[in-house]
């Protein structure tokens, strides 16, 4: 079943001074099935973040529809959208986006608290998730007291706590070293399987992309190419590198065993 349907979305930025307009997204259409792990790649400025923000309801498209779980989110007003977002969408950002005034536990529980869940229910969900994500020990600490990897896991935990149908991750490994990055990717895969949540992940990192079931490449606001993971992870990895090379994106960074250089 299709969870997310993006239909003919365009985004035009118009700076107030000059009449010149800029098309960040140009008539994009695609869909994501339940439980699918999709990567989005493309050169800098190709419109990846813009796309993710529109899907997440943070930004509005200029034209087009975006349907999540049967609901077109482009027609919702601000507060209904906020409600919808809290229930259905989990966000993970490159710079974690944890509130530094709160402990990790408070950060994680925040979406539930905003939705008026009971304290007992919150505790129940937190206990289960934090065990899965391995941050049970540091829950009482503040973000600046824990490592970047732990912060990102806490952010993932926050994204997951509402049992969202889809998780949007914008370069989640971008600020992590290779070990933490790999740990997070393993975690996302696990979440993807165990909670059957769809994941849409923007990344520049070929190694990170190789975790996905499918990769969409974006160029100049349009879908340029799509790749599906096959039997062999290595094969998939090589195929991604080929496309990235054509697109002129950044080189992969963490070394994949046996594939150090392009």
């Amino acid at each position: 079943m299709e969870l997310l349907q993006v239909r003919n979305i365009s985004k035009v930025y118009r700076t107030s001074r000059s009449a010149a307009e800029f098309r960040a997204l140009n008539n994009i259409s695609f869909s994501v099935r339940e439980g699918e792990f999709v990567g989005v790649m493309g050169a800098s400025g190709s419109g990846k973040t813009t796309l993710l923000n529109i899907i997440g309801g943070i930004d509005k498209p200029t034209t087009g529809k975006c349907v999540i779980a049967g609901q077109d989110i482009t027609v919702l007003d601000k507060s209904r959208l906020a409600q919808f977002r809290i229930k259905n969408i989990g966000f993970i950002f490159q710079d974690f986006n944890l509130l530094e005034t709160m402990t990790l536990k408070e950060n994680i529980l925040l979406p539930l608290a905003l939705n008026g869940y009971s304290a007992a229910e919150m505790e129940r969900r937190l206990n289960q998730l934090s065990a899965d994500l391995g941050i049970g020990r540091v829950l009482a600490k503040y973000p600046y007291e824990v490592s970047g990897g732990e912060q990102q896991r806490a952010a993932a935990c926050r994204a997951l706590i509402t049992n969202p149908k889809i998780i949007l991750a914008d370069e989640p490994t971008g600020n992590l070293d290779s070990n933490s990055g790999k740990a997070l990717l393993d975690l996302l895969s696990m979440i993807n399987k165990k909670y059957s949540a769809a994941i849409l992940m923007v990344t520049h990192d070929v190694f990170a992309a190789s975790y996905c079931h499918r990769i969409m490449f974006i160029r100049d606001g349009e879908i340029y190419n799509e790749l599906y993971a096959g039997e062999s992870r290595k094969h998939f990895f090589d195929a991604i590198i080929d496309v990235v090379g054509v697109l002129g994106g950044e080189a992969y960074e963490p070394g994949f065993p046996g594939c150090a250089k392009h």
Partner: peptide, 15 residues
């Protein structure tokens, strides 16, 4: 920036 984050995780304008 705190409010930016909050909006992203779904704090509606009234709240």
């Amino acid at each position: 920036h705190l409010y930016q984050i909050l909006r992203r995780i779904g704090l509606d304008p009234k709240a």
